[in-house]
Structures are given as structure tokens and as C-alpha cells.
């Protein structure tokens, strides 16, 4: 554990990952998607993939504070999207707007602590950085019928005129919630809570059934 001290805040930060000999188990680990992918159909209207064990960091700061914005940009290598409901992607870093003072930073799992540390190093004043990598996972849904499945699942308008590529919404999904980002014309990323992951996986299988579901490992 290290303590980060700067003029304004004192917080406890620790690298939460063990060494590589210990395998992390993502929320859908138990579903053994690799076997499902092997046995299941190779074509269908919807394709599902769990982007497992990604690094996820909640970043809170004041979007009207130029110093904080540039500090965050320096740490992340990309400027925070300050327009509501937008996202940015730069290399292996993506940032989703969540709220006027909140962003979700997604990086490869092994990079999370590094980014967390960099943010603390650059930022000053009133801000919050929280590693939430264990609490969330990412589902990638794509295919010709992906919009049909989303329309059964979420109440936001997913028509391309209202939900262009890059848009992000935090909303309800089935009876749970998700942070939905359109990553391509027929591709969406859902950031979902660990404890709801199994329910949502069941839901997606059920809602996709009439179109045929392809699972990718």
C-alpha cells in the first residue's frame, strides 16, 4: 500500500492485483464461455463476447476546472469528454461520460493501477479516483439484430439518429442497469455490475434466441 499525499487530499491507494500465477475470475467465469463458443453456432443475428478482467476506474472531478481537465488528460493521454453522453477512445484507453463530474475510464486490466497512480500524481484539489475493476464487466453485443435485442432490453432510443456511434448512456437494461456505448454501427458495449452479470447474461440469451446467438470467447 502506498499513501498519496498532495496539497488537498490524502487517500489510500493499493495495487489490488496479485501476481500472474493467480487467475482472476470474471463474473461470467463460471459460464465457461470458451466451451460455449466452441460448441455453439458460428452464425446468427447477435454475437456476444465478455470483455473480461478489464481495468475500470471511476474518476470524479470538476469539469469547469481547467487545471484538473489538463491533469486528467496528461495522466490518461486523452482529454476527458465533457459533452454529456459522449466518449473518447485513444489506443487502449476509453473514457465514458457518466455525469457532469464523473467519468468511467476503461483500460486493460493490468494497466489499471498504473493509470490510477498516474491520475493521483497529476491531479490536485478536490477529485476522486476509485478502482472499480472487480465490480463491473463489459459485454460486447454485435450483429445484424443487435438493435432488436437492445429494444427489448433498454428504454432509450437506439435509432442511429438518436444514438450515434460513440454515444454513451447510463440507463436501465432489463430489470438491471448498464452503461451502454455504441462502439460501431452494429456493435454496442455494455458495462454491467458484477452481481447482475449472470442475470443479464441469461436475459441476453433469452432475448437473442429468435435471431440466433453466437458466443465468442
Amino acid at each position: 500500500m502506498s499513501e498519496v499525499n498532495n496539497e488537498a487530499v490524502t487517500v489510500s491507494v493499493m495495487n489490488q492485483l496479485p501476481d500472474a500465477s493467480i487467475q482472476g475470475e470474471s463474473p461470467l467465469f463460471h459460464a465457461d464461455l470458451a466451451s460455449v463458443a466452441k460448441k455453439g453456432p458460428k452464425t446468427g443475428g447477435v454475437t456476444f463476447k465478455e470483455e473480461a478482467l478489464m481495468g475500470q476506474i471511476t474518476l470524479r472531478l470538476n469539469a469547469e476546472n481547467a487545471d484538473q481537465l489538463s491533469a486528467a488528460e496528461k495522466a490518461l493521454g486523452v482529454a476527458l469528454p465533457t459533452q454529456p453522453l459522449t466518449s473518447v477512445v485513444e489506443g487502449d484507453v476509453s473514457v465514458r461520460w457518466i455525469s457532469p463530474d464523473e467519468w468511467l475510464v476503461v483500460v486493460p486490466g493490468l494497466k489499471a493501477f498504473e493509470v490510477e497512480t498516474a491520475l493521483h500524481a497529476e491531479l490536485s484539489g478536490h477529485y476522486q479516483v476509485v478502482n472499480i475493476s472487480g465490480g463491473w464487466t463489459i459485454y460486447k453485443l454485435s450483429g445484424a439484430n443487435v438493435v432488436d435485442v437492445l429494444k427489448k432490453s433498454t428504454i432509450v432510443d437506439v435509432h442511429p439518429s438518436k444514438f450515434p456511434v460513440g454515444k454513451v448512456v447510463t440507463t436501465t437494461f432489463a430489470k438491471s442497469g448498464a452503461i451502454i456505448r455504441r462502439s460501431g454501427e452494429s456493435e454496442f458495449e455494455l458495462v454491467v455490475r458484477r452481481s447482475f452479470a449472470d442475470y443479464l447474461w441469461l436475459w441476453i440469451q433469452d432475448a437473442s434466441r429468435e435471431y440466433g446467438l453466437v458466443v465468442q470467447a
Binding site: P84, L85, S99, P100, I155, V156, V169
Partner: peptide
């Protein structure tokens, strides 16, 4: 007023 768009009541 923060997201800048209309959303359904259930949110």
C-alpha cells in the same frame, strides 16, 4: 438537465 436529453420516467 445534466444529460441534456429526455429520458423515460423509470430512470
Amino acid at each position: 438537465p445534466y444529460c441534456g436529453e429526455h429520458r423515460e420516467e423509470e430512470e
